[in-house]
Amino acid sequence: DHWHVHIDGERIRLDGASEEFIRTLEELIRRGTDARELKEIIKEYLR
């Protein structure tokens, strides 16, 4: 599956992301997590 998110107007691909990770991201977004912080979390995950 190819997922991607838009954060700060930037399109970030989440290739190979699990549904669990996507749900976690959605939860963080709902909580109002800062965009820079979200991008860091995604970069760490994709390593």
Rank of each mutant, 00 (worst) to 15 (best):
E26L: 15
F21W: 06
H2R: 10
I42E: 00
I22E: 01
I41W: 09
R23G: 04
E44W: 11
D34G: 12
L28K: 05
E26K: 14
R13F: 14
R36F: 11
K39H: 11
E20K: 10
Y45Q: 03
L25N: 00
E44P: 04
E20W: 15
D15E: 13
G32E: 03
D34E: 09
T33D: 03
A17Q: 03
E40D: 08
H6Q: 09
F21G: 00
R30Q: 07
L25D: 00
E27I: 11
E27G: 08
E10I: 05
H6D: 15
D1E: 12
T24C: 08
I12E: 01
D8M: 04
V5Y: 04
S18K: 06
D1R: 11
G32L: 04
I42Q: 00
G9P: 02
R31M: 11
E19G: 10
E37P: 02
G32I: 03
L46I: 11
K43S: 09
D15R: 13
R31V: 09
T24F: 11
R36K: 14
I7F: 04
L25M: 06
L14T: 02
L25C: 02
R31D: 06
D1Y: 09
G16V: 06
E19V: 14
H2M: 09
I7H: 01
H4V: 14
E19F: 14
E37F: 15
L14D: 00
G16K: 06
A17W: 04
I42R: 00
E26Y: 14
E44R: 13
R36T: 13
E19H: 12
G16N: 11
D1W: 05
R23M: 10
E27D: 10
E19Y: 14
L14R: 01
E37W: 12
I22Y: 07
S18G: 08
I22G: 02
I41D: 00
G16L: 06
G32H: 05
E20D: 09
F21T: 02
G9K: 04
H2F: 08
K39Q: 08
G9Q: 04
V5I: 14
E19N: 11
I7E: 01
H6T: 14
D34Y: 04
I41F: 13
L28Y: 12
F21N: 01
T24Y: 14
E37Q: 13
R36H: 12
D8T: 03
D8A: 08
D1L: 14
I7Q: 01
D34Q: 09
E27A: 12
